[in-house]
């Protein structure tokens, strides 16, 4: 048996060594983490327009993204031109949706990207909501009638692979959105994700859910319904 003094010293030294090494590793890899995250954000937004961008290399993403027009909207759909602490105008790509979500709904800023695809403007809108385990988010590319979906992309913080994570990985699920309308002018409702049995296949406002991922799919429905308001306020003004 070791003395109490030895035990205390041992644990103290061990935890200090571990903490120092981890802190060093985390700070030295931080630039790479930040770069990867920014790149993956741009990749997500561009893949809403065309799935081919999901496999594109880093330079192509940066190049294409530099041609995308960016706007920041407030909750009423007005374009914001706020400056950050260094006096640089805040761009849509600088917005941290995680932080925006914590603000009161009226104070949130929303990113809007406009991508020119063969002479036609595509409006890329983003939404964020709750999945089963953690947050889910997605971007929708809308044609210039502001209704027809040209492409979607989803992502998640911690949904189950093979079930909820399918909203991101399953191309068949995402393909269903293309050509559908995100907003139904007839009854004022947004697009919904429904389980197979309840779905009317002729409707443009319904998408078939993934089996085994009911909560995540309901999350997608809710996220669209709650996240689109500022964008539609903006579209109305255009």
């Amino acid at each position: 048996m070791h003395s109490n003094k030895y035990v205390f010293l041992y644990t103290l030294v061990l935890t200090t060594v571990v903490a120092v090494v981890l802190a060093f590793l985390a700070t030295s890899l931080k630039p790479l983490h930040v770069k990867n995250e920014a790149l993956s954000k741009k990749k997500d937004i561009l893949s809403a327009v065309d799935a081919k961008f999901a496999d594109a290399d880093d330079d192509e993403i940066e190049n294409t993204f530099s041609k995308v027009k960016q706007f920041v909207l407030d909750a009423e759909g007005n374009i914001l031109k706020n400056k950050n602490s260094v006096g640089k105008e805040i761009q849509a790509e600088d917005l941290d949706m995680k932080k925006e979500e914590k603000k009161a709904e009226a104070d949130r800023s929303y990113p809007l990207y406009v991508y020119n695809h063969n002479g036609q403007d595509l409006y890329i809108v983003s939404a964020r909501g709750n999945g089963l385990w953690d947050k889910i988010w997605g971007s929708f590319a809308l044609k210039d009638d502001f209704r027809t979906i040209a492409g979607v992309t989803f992502d998640h913080a911690g949904e189950t692979p093979g079930l909820g994570a399918e909203i991101k990985d399953n191309t068949d699920f995402k393909k269903q959105f293309i050509g559908d309308k995100i907003y139904n002018d007839a009854n004022g409702e947004y697009l919904v994700v429904k389980k197979g049995g309840q779905r009317d296949f002729n409707k443009d406002y319904e998408v078939d859910a993934i089996s085994g991922a009911t909560v995540t799919c309901d999350g997608v429905t809710d996220m669209i319904a709650s996240g689109m308001t500022p964008y539609f306020a903006y579209f109305k003004k255009k």
Binding site: M1, H2, T11, T15, V18, L22, L32, H33, N36
Partner: peptide, 29 residues
Amino acid sequence: PKQVRMIVQLVVIAFLVTVVELVLKAFSF
């Protein structure tokens, strides 16, 4: 020290797992 061996083991495991996570995040996002 045998009194705290489980805790020491856990610290070592958690340390290695965090290293795996940090390295994957940097080099294979």
